[in-house]
Amino acid sequence: MKKYICPICGYVYDEAKEGVKFEDLPDDWKCPLCGAPKNLFKAEAIEVTKDEIKDEVVESSETKEDLREMSDLEISALCSSLARGCEKQYLDEEKELFTKLANHYKNKAQNKESSDLESLISKINEDLNINYPKARKVAEEKMDRGALRVITWGEKVSAILNSLLSQYQNDKEFTKNTKIYVCDICGFIYVGDEKPEICPICKVPSFKLLEVKRGA
């Protein structure tokens, strides 16, 4: 008998208690707490050690990038992030100005790369397999708890996106009969009718999980 753990919210599926082997659960079985698909679950015994990430990746960190080379999209994301920062401080005028800048640069941005599903999936996998583990290693070495926080949340959200896209590849209408919510804090996507009480990733109360309506 084994235990299987949801990597998103930590829910434990205990075969001994449930009386059904994890592998015998149907493929479309989902985490009862956060909706994470079955294939993301990991058996409790397996532990990934940090050493598995090769040392060379840390050493190869490039020198400081010239910030002047920010793309229009990056400028837009930084401006919308600063708009949120102003909103939190109740600085309404500043928030509006940053939002305006963010929209301007977003509209100005050109499509440089191929915009198909395959390239989206390959980029997400690049993040999950290379960029997040590498960033985590550096953040651990530098003892940057804030960076570790954003890496942990982002890694979990990216894993969810990856699994949603593979479900979509199998069945283009897999969300046909359910609602979709996006956590306005961390970006967690919940596919299902009743959203969880708190976001399973960042733990914000459910009112910040916003429904994305169809046809809107």
Binding site: R84, G146, W153, K176, V182, D184, G187, I189, R214
Partner: peptide
């Protein structure tokens, strides 16, 4: 149905990029 899913995915990525900038 497709539009709804990809709009959600686009939003999730923007939120992650914003959060990364904060750190």
């Amino acid at each position: 149905i497709e539009k709804q899913l990809f709009k959600s995915i686009a939003r999730a990525n923007r939120l992650m990029a914003e959060d990364l900038y904060r750190e």
